[in-house]
């Protein structure tokens, strides 16, 4: 299963979200130093290393921003260990303003 699919499954199961988008943004980071492959290797932008998660779920109601992020980071700890090194998160509860 791809990293994206495995994250989607976990997020879906854990939060039963109203909206969920897992976006692979790895291509946006081509040319920057790739974290785990040494300082002299430039990342070519392929693969599954940088993601953005947009999620709206009532599970986030009453949680602080930090707690929302900590919750998602913990859920996706395996993926973060297995090569995802940037995880931009946009969690919201229903009715809250989102970036779009």
């Amino acid at each position: 299963m791809s990293m994206k699919a495995s994250m989607e499954t976990k997020l879906q199961t854990a939060y039963a979200p109203e909206q969920l988008e897992v976006i692979n943004e790895s291509h946006l980071h081509a040319g920057h130093h790739h974290e785990d492959s040494g300082h002299h290797v430039m990342y070519d932008g392929t693969g599954e290393t940088h993601f953005r998660v947009r999620i709206v779920s009532s599970a986030f109601e009453g949680m602080s921003r930090i707690d929302r992020h900590r919750s998602i980071n913990a859920l996706l700890a395996d993926e973060l260990k297995a090569g995802v090194h940037a995880l931009a998160l946009e969690p919201a509860a229903p009715g809250e303003k989102t970036r779009r």
């Binding site: 921003r65 930090i66 992020h69």
Partner: peptide, 15 residues
């Protein structure tokens, strides 16, 4: 916290 950057204000982790 698994990612960088990280901001601290007066000893407190902000995000």
């Amino acid at each position: 916290w698994p990612t960088i950057p990280q901001l601290y204000v007066k000893g407190e982790f902000i995000g």
